[in-house]
């Protein structure tokens, strides 16, 4: 399955699209059930808070290979079962405050047992969007960059 990611110039959002071989109610469970969400994150990953309901909040914590703690926190603005989730997401772990993003996750059944997941991440401006794509999301970058660090050491 291919992952489509679009970050158009002059815009401040990111679109992520991916299809899954399952019906939409199963795919939706992976987006709202705490134990299932944990399973598809980069480990070690825990939730300090998780209330998967309208108005509920969440706060995640991840310890990177460099020993730094990162995470995201936000609020589930709206959860429409098997259809859509609207939530905010603030990156924690930088020495300064960043403005949270607004995320819209939607599932749509495109065929029997085939569901398209679309995630739209909206930032407050284009620069923040680019910074997030390029180097702001430290959680995954740390794995990548610690590999890169090791490569650089051997050169």
């Amino acid at each position: 399955m291919t992952t489509n990611i679009t970050a158009e110039k002059g815009k401040q959002d990111i679109w992520i699209e991916r299809s899954f071989n399952a019906n939409k109610s199963l795919v939706f469970r992976l987006l709202v059930e705490e134990d299932l969400i944990i399973q598809w994150q980069v480990q070690p990953f825990t939730f300090k808070t998780f209330e998967g309901k309208n108005g509920g909040s969440y706060e995640s914590e991840h310890i990177g290979p460099d020993g730094n703690t990162y995470g995201f926190k936000g609020v589930f603005h709206e959860i429409i079962p098997n259809e859509r989730i609207i939530k905010t997401s603030e990156f924690i772990g930088l020495p300064f405050k960043v403005i949270p993003t607004l995320e819209i996750h939607s599932v749509e059944e495109t065929n029997t047992d085939q569901t398209q997941l679309t995630i739209q991440i909206i930032c407050n401006n284009e620069e923040v969007r680019d910074a997030m794509v390029q180097h702001g999301m430290q959680q995954q970058f740390d794995t990548l960059f610690s590999n890169l660090d090791n490569c650089l050491k051997t050169i």
Binding site: M1, T3, I5, I16, R18, Q41, V42, V133, Q140, L144
Partner: peptide, 11 residues
């Protein structure tokens, strides 16, 4: 690319 790799790994 790294952003895509993250999401692909998750998916």
């Amino acid at each position: 690319e790294p952003f895509r790799q993250l999401w692909e790994a998750r998916f």
